[in-house]
Design a protein around this nucleic acid. Structure first.
Lengths: 210, 210
DNA sequence: AGTTTGAGTGAACGTATGTTCACCCAAAGT
DNA sequence: ACTTTGGGTGAACATACGTTCACTCAAACT
Protein backbone atom coordinates (compact mmCIF):
# COMPACT_ATOMS: atom_id res chain seq x y z
CA UNK A 1 0.00 0.00 0.00
CA UNK A 2 1.22 3.54 -0.67
CA UNK A 3 0.19 6.93 0.68
CA UNK A 4 -0.65 10.12 -1.20
CA UNK A 5 3.01 11.02 -1.68
CA UNK A 6 4.07 7.52 -2.69
CA UNK A 7 5.60 6.54 0.61
CA UNK A 8 4.98 3.02 1.87
CA UNK A 9 2.33 2.74 4.56
CA UNK A 10 2.95 0.13 7.23
CA UNK A 11 0.72 -0.95 10.03
CA UNK A 12 2.14 -0.97 13.50
CA UNK A 13 2.68 -4.74 13.60
CA UNK A 14 4.15 -4.80 10.10
CA UNK A 15 6.79 -2.31 11.16
CA UNK A 16 7.49 -4.23 14.35
CA UNK A 17 7.82 -7.44 12.37
CA UNK A 18 10.22 -5.77 9.98
CA UNK A 19 12.46 -4.49 12.77
CA UNK A 20 12.38 -7.86 14.48
CA UNK A 21 13.46 -9.50 11.22
CA UNK A 22 16.27 -6.95 10.89
CA UNK A 23 17.46 -7.77 14.41
CA UNK A 24 17.48 -11.49 13.66
CA UNK A 25 19.38 -10.91 10.42
CA UNK A 26 21.86 -8.60 12.11
CA UNK A 27 22.50 -11.22 14.78
CA UNK A 28 23.05 -13.89 12.13
CA UNK A 29 25.47 -11.60 10.30
CA UNK A 30 27.40 -10.73 13.46
CA UNK A 31 27.66 -14.33 14.70
CA UNK A 32 28.90 -15.47 11.29
CA UNK A 33 32.50 -15.05 12.39
CA UNK A 34 32.00 -15.05 16.12
CA UNK A 35 29.35 -16.36 18.50
CA UNK A 36 26.28 -15.25 20.41
CA UNK A 37 28.25 -15.13 23.64
CA UNK A 38 30.72 -12.74 22.04
CA UNK A 39 28.41 -10.15 20.50
CA UNK A 40 26.72 -7.32 22.33
CA UNK A 41 23.26 -5.91 22.33
CA UNK A 42 24.72 -2.60 21.22
CA UNK A 43 26.48 -4.11 18.22
CA UNK A 44 23.21 -5.65 17.09
CA UNK A 45 21.38 -2.36 17.56
CA UNK A 46 24.00 -0.43 15.63
CA UNK A 47 23.88 -2.98 12.79
CA UNK A 48 20.09 -2.67 12.61
CA UNK A 49 20.20 1.10 12.83
CA UNK A 50 18.22 1.48 16.02
CA UNK A 51 19.16 2.81 19.42
CA UNK A 52 20.19 0.16 22.00
CA UNK A 53 17.11 0.64 24.12
CA UNK A 54 14.80 -0.18 21.23
CA UNK A 55 16.19 -3.70 21.25
CA UNK A 56 14.27 -4.42 24.43
CA UNK A 57 10.97 -3.87 22.62
CA UNK A 58 11.65 -7.14 20.78
CA UNK A 59 13.80 -9.33 23.02
CA UNK A 60 14.74 -9.00 26.64
CA UNK A 61 18.27 -10.32 26.18
CA UNK A 62 20.70 -11.59 23.57
CA UNK A 63 19.99 -15.06 24.88
CA UNK A 64 16.28 -14.93 24.05
CA UNK A 65 17.23 -13.57 20.64
CA UNK A 66 19.31 -16.74 20.35
CA UNK A 67 16.36 -18.93 21.24
CA UNK A 68 14.31 -17.28 18.49
CA UNK A 69 17.12 -17.99 16.04
CA UNK A 70 17.19 -21.62 17.11
CA UNK A 71 13.48 -21.82 16.32
CA UNK A 72 13.74 -20.45 12.84
CA UNK A 73 16.92 -22.37 12.08
CA UNK A 74 15.23 -25.66 12.86
CA UNK A 75 12.28 -24.65 10.76
CA UNK A 76 14.77 -24.60 7.87
CA UNK A 77 16.12 -27.96 8.96
CA UNK A 78 12.71 -29.56 9.06
CA UNK A 79 12.23 -28.34 5.51
CA UNK A 80 15.37 -30.27 4.66
CA UNK A 81 14.04 -33.48 6.20
CA UNK A 82 10.78 -33.09 4.29
CA UNK A 83 12.58 -32.56 0.98
CA UNK A 84 14.93 -35.47 1.56
CA UNK A 85 12.17 -37.90 2.33
CA UNK A 86 10.15 -36.63 -0.61
CA UNK A 87 12.95 -37.22 -3.04
CA UNK A 88 13.98 -40.69 -1.89
CA UNK A 89 11.22 -43.23 -2.35
CA UNK A 90 13.83 -45.97 -2.67
CA UNK A 91 16.14 -46.88 0.18
CA UNK A 92 18.82 -47.67 -2.36
CA UNK A 93 18.78 -44.12 -3.67
CA UNK A 94 18.40 -42.64 -0.24
CA UNK A 95 21.96 -41.49 0.05
CA UNK A 96 22.55 -40.43 -3.53
CA UNK A 97 19.32 -38.48 -3.56
CA UNK A 98 19.70 -36.90 -0.16
CA UNK A 99 23.17 -35.46 -0.28
CA UNK A 100 22.53 -32.94 -3.06
CA UNK A 101 19.39 -31.88 -1.21
CA UNK A 102 21.49 -31.36 1.93
CA UNK A 103 24.02 -29.34 -0.05
CA UNK A 104 21.28 -27.19 -1.55
CA UNK A 105 19.79 -26.51 1.84
CA UNK A 106 23.10 -25.64 3.42
CA UNK A 107 23.81 -23.27 0.56
CA UNK A 108 20.36 -21.68 0.75
CA UNK A 109 20.28 -21.37 4.55
CA UNK A 110 23.97 -20.96 5.17
CA UNK A 111 23.54 -18.50 8.03
CA UNK A 112 21.14 -20.78 9.88
CA UNK A 113 23.33 -23.86 9.61
CA UNK A 114 26.42 -21.91 10.61
CA UNK A 115 24.52 -20.51 13.56
CA UNK A 116 23.50 -23.94 14.78
CA UNK A 117 26.99 -25.37 14.29
CA UNK A 118 28.52 -22.60 16.38
CA UNK A 119 25.98 -22.22 19.14
CA UNK A 120 25.49 -25.96 19.54
CA UNK A 121 28.98 -26.13 21.00
CA UNK A 122 29.60 -22.66 22.38
CA UNK A 123 26.34 -20.78 22.77
CA UNK A 124 24.68 -19.67 25.98
CA UNK A 125 23.67 -22.74 28.04
CA UNK A 126 19.95 -22.42 27.36
CA UNK A 127 20.57 -22.02 23.65
CA UNK A 128 22.78 -25.10 23.66
CA UNK A 129 20.10 -27.05 25.41
CA UNK A 130 17.42 -25.91 22.97
CA UNK A 131 19.55 -27.06 20.04
CA UNK A 132 20.30 -30.39 21.68
CA UNK A 133 16.59 -30.92 22.21
CA UNK A 134 15.68 -30.07 18.62
CA UNK A 135 18.32 -32.45 17.27
CA UNK A 136 16.93 -35.16 19.51
CA UNK A 137 13.45 -34.63 18.06
CA UNK A 138 14.79 -34.83 14.54
CA UNK A 139 16.64 -38.03 15.34
CA UNK A 140 13.39 -39.57 16.55
CA UNK A 141 11.63 -38.52 13.36
CA UNK A 142 14.36 -40.09 11.28
CA UNK A 143 14.12 -43.33 13.25
CA UNK A 144 10.43 -43.71 12.46
CA UNK A 145 11.16 -42.90 8.82
CA UNK A 146 13.83 -45.58 8.59
CA UNK A 147 11.49 -48.08 10.22
CA UNK A 148 9.06 -47.68 7.33
CA UNK A 149 11.71 -48.55 4.78
CA UNK A 150 11.84 -52.13 3.35
CA UNK A 151 14.14 -54.11 5.62
CA UNK A 152 13.92 -51.49 8.32
CA UNK A 153 11.81 -53.78 10.44
CA UNK A 154 14.85 -55.97 11.02
CA UNK A 155 15.98 -53.50 13.67
CA UNK A 156 14.81 -53.34 17.21
CA UNK A 157 13.49 -49.95 18.28
CA UNK A 158 16.61 -49.40 20.29
CA UNK A 159 18.90 -50.12 17.38
CA UNK A 160 16.76 -48.01 15.06
CA UNK A 161 17.34 -45.04 17.32
CA UNK A 162 21.04 -45.70 17.44
CA UNK A 163 21.25 -45.93 13.66
CA UNK A 164 19.29 -42.72 13.26
CA UNK A 165 21.56 -41.02 15.76
CA UNK A 166 24.61 -42.26 13.89
CA UNK A 167 23.28 -40.80 10.65
CA UNK A 168 22.19 -37.51 12.17
CA UNK A 169 25.45 -36.84 13.94
CA UNK A 170 27.38 -37.62 10.80
CA UNK A 171 25.15 -35.38 8.71
CA UNK A 172 25.62 -32.60 11.26
CA UNK A 173 29.34 -33.04 10.81
CA UNK A 174 28.95 -32.88 7.04
CA UNK A 175 26.89 -29.71 7.25
CA UNK A 176 29.61 -28.15 9.38
CA UNK A 177 32.17 -29.07 6.76
CA UNK A 178 30.12 -27.64 3.92
CA UNK A 179 29.94 -24.37 5.83
CA UNK A 180 33.64 -24.24 6.64
CA UNK A 181 34.75 -25.03 3.10
CA UNK A 182 32.02 -24.05 0.63
CA UNK A 183 34.48 -24.28 -2.26
CA UNK A 184 35.12 -27.97 -1.57
CA UNK A 185 31.46 -28.90 -1.81
CA UNK A 186 31.90 -31.44 -4.61
CA UNK A 187 34.73 -33.26 -2.83
CA UNK A 188 32.96 -33.25 0.53
CA UNK A 189 29.79 -34.66 -1.01
CA UNK A 190 31.65 -37.41 -2.84
CA UNK A 191 33.53 -38.43 0.29
CA UNK A 192 30.45 -38.30 2.46
CA UNK A 193 28.53 -40.44 -0.03
CA UNK A 194 31.14 -43.18 0.22
CA UNK A 195 31.18 -42.92 4.00
CA UNK A 196 27.42 -43.10 4.32
CA UNK A 197 27.50 -46.17 2.11
CA UNK A 198 30.03 -47.77 4.40
CA UNK A 199 27.69 -46.98 7.22
CA UNK A 200 24.71 -48.38 5.36
CA UNK A 201 26.50 -51.57 4.45
CA UNK A 202 27.01 -52.00 8.16
CA UNK A 203 23.36 -51.39 8.83
CA UNK A 204 22.16 -53.78 6.13
CA UNK A 205 24.46 -56.52 7.38
CA UNK A 206 23.45 -55.91 10.93
CA UNK A 207 20.58 -58.34 11.13
CA UNK A 208 22.70 -61.35 10.20
CA UNK A 209 24.90 -60.63 13.18
CA UNK A 210 22.27 -60.64 15.81
CA UNK B 1 64.58 -26.01 47.39
CA UNK B 2 63.93 -23.88 50.48
CA UNK B 3 65.60 -20.80 51.90
CA UNK B 4 66.85 -20.16 55.41
CA UNK B 5 63.38 -19.32 56.68
CA UNK B 6 61.72 -22.26 54.97
CA UNK B 7 60.16 -20.31 52.12
CA UNK B 8 60.28 -21.88 48.67
CA UNK B 9 63.04 -20.53 46.42
CA UNK B 10 62.16 -20.32 42.74
CA UNK B 11 64.39 -19.43 39.87
CA UNK B 12 63.19 -16.75 37.51
CA UNK B 13 62.08 -19.20 34.81
CA UNK B 14 60.38 -21.48 37.32
CA UNK B 15 58.26 -18.62 38.52
CA UNK B 16 57.48 -17.56 34.97
CA UNK B 17 56.51 -21.11 34.10
CA UNK B 18 54.24 -21.26 37.12
CA UNK B 19 52.43 -18.05 36.21
CA UNK B 20 52.09 -19.18 32.61
CA UNK B 21 50.55 -22.43 33.84
CA UNK B 22 48.18 -20.43 36.04
CA UNK B 23 47.11 -18.34 33.06
CA UNK B 24 46.44 -21.43 30.96
CA UNK B 25 44.43 -23.00 33.77
CA UNK B 26 42.48 -19.81 34.37
CA UNK B 27 41.61 -19.63 30.67
CA UNK B 28 40.45 -23.26 30.70
CA UNK B 29 38.32 -22.57 33.76
CA UNK B 30 36.77 -19.44 32.27
CA UNK B 31 36.03 -21.00 28.87
CA UNK B 32 34.39 -23.98 30.54
CA UNK B 33 30.99 -22.33 30.30
CA UNK B 34 31.75 -19.77 27.63
CA UNK B 35 34.31 -19.44 24.83
CA UNK B 36 37.63 -17.86 24.09
CA UNK B 37 35.95 -15.17 22.00
CA UNK B 38 33.81 -14.23 24.99
CA UNK B 39 36.39 -13.91 27.74
CA UNK B 40 38.61 -10.94 28.37
CA UNK B 41 42.25 -10.54 29.15
CA UNK B 42 41.24 -8.80 32.36
CA UNK B 43 39.07 -11.69 33.52
CA UNK B 44 41.97 -14.05 33.02
CA UNK B 45 44.34 -11.75 34.89
CA UNK B 46 41.93 -11.35 37.79
CA UNK B 47 41.44 -15.13 37.99
CA UNK B 48 45.21 -15.65 38.09
CA UNK B 49 45.72 -12.89 40.60
CA UNK B 50 47.96 -10.69 38.49
CA UNK B 51 47.48 -7.24 37.09
CA UNK B 52 46.21 -7.08 33.47
CA UNK B 53 49.49 -5.75 32.10
CA UNK B 54 51.43 -8.75 33.44
CA UNK B 55 49.47 -10.93 31.01
CA UNK B 56 51.48 -9.49 28.12
CA UNK B 57 54.70 -10.94 29.58
CA UNK B 58 53.37 -14.37 28.61
CA UNK B 59 51.05 -13.97 25.63
CA UNK B 60 50.43 -11.04 23.35
CA UNK B 61 46.71 -11.69 22.98
CA UNK B 62 43.94 -14.01 24.08
CA UNK B 63 44.16 -15.62 20.66
CA UNK B 64 47.78 -16.72 21.11
CA UNK B 65 46.84 -18.02 24.54
CA UNK B 66 44.25 -20.07 22.64
CA UNK B 67 46.87 -21.45 20.27
CA UNK B 68 48.95 -22.57 23.26
CA UNK B 69 45.89 -24.32 24.68
CA UNK B 70 45.31 -26.07 21.36
CA UNK B 71 48.88 -27.38 21.54
CA UNK B 72 48.60 -28.83 25.00
CA UNK B 73 45.10 -30.17 24.40
CA UNK B 74 46.28 -32.18 21.43
CA UNK B 75 49.19 -33.45 23.43
CA UNK B 76 46.56 -35.01 25.69
CA UNK B 77 44.75 -36.37 22.67
CA UNK B 78 47.85 -37.99 21.25
CA UNK B 79 48.28 -39.69 24.60
CA UNK B 80 44.80 -41.10 24.09
CA UNK B 81 45.67 -42.50 20.67
CA UNK B 82 48.81 -44.09 22.07
CA UNK B 83 46.93 -45.72 24.92
CA UNK B 84 44.15 -46.96 22.67
CA UNK B 85 46.50 -48.59 20.24
CA UNK B 86 48.53 -50.06 23.08
CA UNK B 87 45.52 -51.70 24.60
CA UNK B 88 44.01 -53.16 21.44
CA UNK B 89 46.29 -55.69 19.78
CA UNK B 90 43.24 -57.42 18.32
CA UNK B 91 41.01 -55.71 15.83
CA UNK B 92 38.05 -57.58 17.29
CA UNK B 93 38.62 -56.01 20.69
CA UNK B 94 39.43 -52.66 19.21
CA UNK B 95 36.12 -51.07 20.07
CA UNK B 96 35.48 -52.71 23.40
CA UNK B 97 38.98 -51.91 24.54
CA UNK B 98 39.10 -48.37 23.22
CA UNK B 99 35.91 -46.87 24.56
CA UNK B 100 36.77 -47.14 28.25
CA UNK B 101 40.15 -45.64 27.43
CA UNK B 102 38.40 -42.76 25.70
CA UNK B 103 36.11 -42.29 28.68
CA UNK B 104 39.06 -42.30 31.08
CA UNK B 105 40.87 -39.71 29.02
CA UNK B 106 37.87 -37.46 28.71
CA UNK B 107 37.36 -37.66 32.46
CA UNK B 108 41.04 -37.00 33.19
CA UNK B 109 41.42 -34.15 30.67
CA UNK B 110 37.89 -32.82 30.76
CA UNK B 111 38.95 -29.20 30.42
CA UNK B 112 41.06 -29.92 27.34
CA UNK B 113 38.36 -31.88 25.54
CA UNK B 114 35.72 -29.31 26.39
CA UNK B 115 38.03 -26.58 25.14
CA UNK B 116 38.55 -28.30 21.81
CA UNK B 117 34.86 -29.05 21.38
CA UNK B 118 33.93 -25.41 21.96
CA UNK B 119 36.70 -23.65 20.08
CA UNK B 120 36.58 -26.03 17.15
CA UNK B 121 33.23 -24.54 16.23
CA UNK B 122 33.31 -21.06 17.71
CA UNK B 123 36.85 -20.03 18.54
CA UNK B 124 38.87 -17.27 16.92
CA UNK B 125 39.53 -18.13 13.24
CA UNK B 126 43.18 -19.01 13.71
CA UNK B 127 42.38 -21.23 16.67
CA UNK B 128 39.69 -22.99 14.65
CA UNK B 129 42.14 -23.58 11.85
CA UNK B 130 44.79 -24.93 14.21
CA UNK B 131 42.29 -27.42 15.64
CA UNK B 132 41.11 -28.48 12.18
CA UNK B 133 44.71 -29.10 11.18
CA UNK B 134 45.48 -31.17 14.27
CA UNK B 135 42.41 -33.32 13.75
CA UNK B 136 43.49 -33.89 10.17
CA UNK B 137 46.90 -35.10 11.34
CA UNK B 138 45.31 -37.49 13.82
CA UNK B 139 43.01 -38.86 11.13
CA UNK B 140 46.03 -39.63 8.98
CA UNK B 141 47.73 -41.40 11.87
CA UNK B 142 44.63 -43.50 12.45
CA UNK B 143 44.47 -44.44 8.76
CA UNK B 144 47.98 -45.87 8.80
CA UNK B 145 47.18 -47.71 12.02
CA UNK B 146 44.08 -49.30 10.53
CA UNK B 147 46.07 -50.31 7.46
CA UNK B 148 48.35 -52.45 9.65
CA UNK B 149 45.43 -54.39 11.06
CA UNK B 150 44.59 -57.86 9.62
CA UNK B 151 42.16 -57.29 6.80
CA UNK B 152 42.98 -53.63 6.67
CA UNK B 153 44.77 -54.10 3.39
CA UNK B 154 41.44 -54.73 1.70
CA UNK B 155 40.94 -50.97 1.57
CA UNK B 156 42.36 -48.60 -0.97
CA UNK B 157 44.31 -45.72 0.51
CA UNK B 158 41.46 -43.41 -0.31
CA UNK B 159 38.89 -45.56 1.44
CA UNK B 160 41.18 -46.04 4.40
CA UNK B 161 41.28 -42.31 4.88
CA UNK B 162 37.52 -42.07 4.61
CA UNK B 163 37.03 -44.81 7.16
CA UNK B 164 39.47 -43.15 9.54
CA UNK B 165 37.68 -39.85 9.08
CA UNK B 166 34.35 -41.52 9.79
CA UNK B 167 35.69 -42.98 13.02
CA UNK B 168 37.40 -39.78 14.14
CA UNK B 169 34.42 -37.55 13.54
CA UNK B 170 32.19 -39.96 15.40
CA UNK B 171 34.61 -40.20 18.29
CA UNK B 172 34.79 -36.42 18.42
CA UNK B 173 31.00 -36.41 18.69
CA UNK B 174 31.16 -38.99 21.47
CA UNK B 175 33.74 -37.00 23.40
CA UNK B 176 31.48 -33.95 23.15
CA UNK B 177 28.61 -35.98 24.54
CA UNK B 178 30.67 -37.31 27.44
CA UNK B 179 31.53 -33.72 28.32
CA UNK B 180 27.97 -32.46 28.09
CA UNK B 181 26.52 -35.28 30.14
CA UNK B 182 29.17 -36.76 32.42
CA UNK B 183 26.51 -38.52 34.49
CA UNK B 184 25.33 -40.51 31.46
CA UNK B 185 28.75 -41.94 30.76
CA UNK B 186 27.71 -45.58 31.01
CA UNK B 187 24.74 -45.15 28.68
CA UNK B 188 26.72 -43.11 26.16
CA UNK B 189 29.50 -45.67 26.07
CA UNK B 190 27.08 -48.57 25.61
CA UNK B 191 25.28 -46.79 22.77
CA UNK B 192 28.50 -45.73 21.11
CA UNK B 193 29.85 -49.26 21.29
CA UNK B 194 26.85 -50.58 19.38
CA UNK B 195 27.10 -47.77 16.86
CA UNK B 196 30.80 -48.29 16.24
CA UNK B 197 30.07 -51.97 15.71
CA UNK B 198 27.46 -51.08 13.11
CA UNK B 199 30.09 -48.96 11.50
CA UNK B 200 32.67 -51.71 11.68
CA UNK B 201 30.33 -54.29 10.23
CA UNK B 202 30.04 -51.96 7.31
CA UNK B 203 33.76 -51.65 7.03
CA UNK B 204 34.36 -55.39 7.23
CA UNK B 205 31.75 -56.09 4.59
CA UNK B 206 33.07 -53.35 2.39
CA UNK B 207 35.49 -55.41 0.33
CA UNK B 208 32.80 -57.79 -0.89
CA UNK B 209 30.95 -54.87 -2.37
CA UNK B 210 33.76 -53.54 -4.52
C1' DA C 1 80.18 -5.49 44.16
C1' DG C 2 77.93 -3.52 40.40
C1' DT C 3 74.99 -3.86 36.40
C1' DT C 4 71.45 -5.74 33.59
C1' DT C 5 67.20 -8.14 32.93
C1' DG C 6 62.49 -9.04 33.20
C1' DA C 7 58.06 -10.48 35.75
C1' DG C 8 54.86 -7.94 38.03
C1' DT C 9 52.81 -3.10 39.48
C1' DG C 10 49.54 0.85 39.33
C1' DA C 11 47.73 4.84 37.21
C1' DA C 12 45.68 6.53 33.25
C1' DC C 13 43.57 6.80 28.48
C1' DG C 14 39.57 6.42 25.42
C1' DT C 15 36.09 3.41 24.29
C1' DA C 16 32.26 -0.08 24.83
C1' DT C 17 29.21 -2.46 27.71
C1' DG C 18 24.01 -3.45 29.90
C1' DT C 19 20.29 -1.11 31.84
C1' DT C 20 17.48 2.92 33.77
C1' DC C 21 14.53 6.61 32.82
C1' DA C 22 11.70 10.32 30.93
C1' DC C 23 10.37 11.54 26.64
C1' DC C 24 8.32 11.71 21.64
C1' DC C 25 4.76 10.98 18.29
C1' DA C 26 2.15 8.36 14.91
C1' DA C 27 -0.90 4.42 14.58
C1' DA C 28 -4.84 2.10 16.85
C1' DG C 29 -8.82 2.15 19.63
C1' DT C 30 -12.83 4.79 21.44
C1' DA D 1 -12.11 14.37 18.10
C1' DC D 2 -9.69 12.43 21.95
C1' DT D 3 -7.21 9.00 24.49
C1' DT D 4 -4.34 5.07 24.73
C1' DT D 5 -0.69 2.27 23.08
C1' DG D 6 3.83 1.14 21.97
C1' DG D 7 8.10 1.33 18.86
C1' DG D 8 11.81 4.24 18.86
C1' DT D 9 14.79 8.18 21.06
C1' DG D 10 18.66 10.26 23.71
C1' DA D 11 20.86 11.23 27.96
C1' DA D 12 22.90 9.23 31.82
C1' DC D 13 24.81 5.68 35.06
C1' DA D 14 28.35 2.53 36.75
C1' DT D 15 31.24 -0.85 35.16
C1' DA D 16 34.39 -3.26 32.11
C1' DC D 17 37.36 -3.37 28.26
C1' DG D 18 42.46 -3.37 25.67
C1' DT D 19 46.58 -0.96 25.73
C1' DT D 20 50.18 2.67 27.02
C1' DC D 21 53.62 4.04 30.08
C1' DA D 22 56.88 4.85 33.71
C1' DC D 23 57.87 2.27 37.79
C1' DT D 24 59.87 -1.43 41.20
C1' DC D 25 62.90 -4.77 42.90
C1' DA D 26 64.86 -9.36 43.16
C1' DA D 27 67.11 -12.81 40.40
C1' DA D 28 70.81 -13.41 36.99
C1' DC D 29 74.88 -12.09 34.89
C1' DT D 30 79.59 -9.78 34.75
Amino acid sequence: MTGALGEVIETRSERKQRTRRAILDAALALTDDSSLVAISLRQVAKEVGIVPTAFYRHFDSVESLGLALVDESFESLRGLLRDVWLRSPQFQDYIDGSLPVLADHVRAHRAHYAFIARERAAGPPRVREAIRHEIELITRELATDVARVPGGRAFSTEHLNLLADLIVSFVVTTAERLIEEPAAEARILAETRTQLRMLMVGALNWRSRR
